[in-house]
């Protein structure tokens, strides 16, 4: 059973109040106030001095569990929201692998599920490990990217993206944080080819997310009330408040404290929220928790994953 053996997160210390993003993102005062008062955003993290490769490297260097185990890493999978982040043929992923003694691993990026690509990377890593002949094989799942252009910094009326990165050591049968289920539903009908369907997407957002959460919980053999904690994507606070209302789930069991502190860190939210949960001792041995995310942009992907800690 796929398991998370260790998780490291790099969140830059540098943070920008959302009011300072008004000019670069062409936001009106009303839009900024909406983000602050309604969506619960406050500051967004950026790493202006770090390149894409340096972001990833910062996360890997914090992964103490990797040291001395590099030779066991057979796969490095970068789960990335934005499909194109550097000019061709630059390759930050392989640069980092070579710098950190992981050049022997099969390294690649999975993408085009937007912010749901991070959970996909974990699931995919588990499948590769399950099919690997080496019993002690490990996979390293990375997330992290730059908010380098307006398209990558803003979901109009919904969220603001920041920068951060994570590194997660995955094993095929580890003892900690075992993955019990994964459900993914893709909605390509919201692609830009079909015109502006924003209103319809907003109508379907919460019911669609609720559906994959319920299916993931059921696939894990659990009831929703068995979920000790939900680790959300940091899209905003109000979305999760309304989702909890829809699902009759206590919002106090959704870890939302990083939304005002970080902004939406692409695929990194899940891992950053996991680290926060561990640091605050919110997960006890045996607890079940759920990670959920929506990859939105051109098309939409709703994903949920249940773990036992």
């Amino acid at each position: 059973m796929t398991a998370l053996d260790a998780v490291s997160v790099y969140t830059p210390a540098f943070r920008v109040p959302i009011e300072d993003l008004a000019d670069p993102l062409d936001l009106t005062d009303i839009q900024v106030r909406l983000f602050r008062r309604f969506h619960g955003l406050d500051q967004v993290r950026f790493a202006p001095d770090r390149s894409p490769a340096e972001l990833l490297r910062a996360a890997v260097e914090g992964l103490a569990g990797l040291r001395g185990q590099e030779h066991r890493v057979r796969y490095v999978v970068h789960g990335r929201a934005m499909p194109v982040v550097v000019p061709y043929p630059h390759n930050p992923l392989h640069d980092v692998c070579r710098q950190l003694g992981l050049g022997h691993a099969l390294a690649f990026t999975v993408t085009q599920q937007s912010c749901a690509s991070g959970l996909l990377a974990v699931e995919l890593a588990g499948r590769l490990l399950a099919g690997d002949p080496h019993e002690d094989a490990l996979a390293l799942v990375l997330t992290g990217e730059k908010a380098f252009t307006r398209h990558a910094r803003l979901i109009p009326g919904t969220s603001l993206f920041g920068e951060g990165a994570s590194a997660c050591l995955v094993s095929a049968d580890g003892p900690r944080d075992r993955m019990l289920s994964f459900v993914c539903a893709q909605r390509g009908e919201f692609d830009g080819e079909y015109g502006d369907r924003e209103e319809e997407f907003q109508r379907q957002y919460r019911p669609s997310l609720a559906e994959v959460i319920n299916r993931a919980v059921a696939d894990a053999g659990l009831a929703l009330d068995d979920i000790r904690l939900v680790l959300p994507h940091n899209v905003n606070v109000v979305t999760w408040q309304r989702l909890c209302s829809l699902m009759d789930f206590p919002v106090q069991r959704v870890l939302l404290s990083n939304v005002p502190d970080n902004g939406h860190l692409f695929c990194t939210d899940a891992f950053a929220n996991y680290r926060t949960a561990r640091e605050r001792d919110l997960l006890r041995e045996g607890d079940h928790y759920l990670v959920a995310t929506v990859g939105a942009g051109a098309g939409a992907t709703f994903s949920a994953m249940v773990f036992q800690h």
Partner: peptide, 24 residues
Amino acid sequence: GRATATYLSHVCPGTPMSFAVCDQ
């Protein structure tokens, strides 16, 4: 910026789980 694989999930019979593999 397009999630092309997600779009393809919609146009492919079966609405398959879809993603892209790149940078390799």
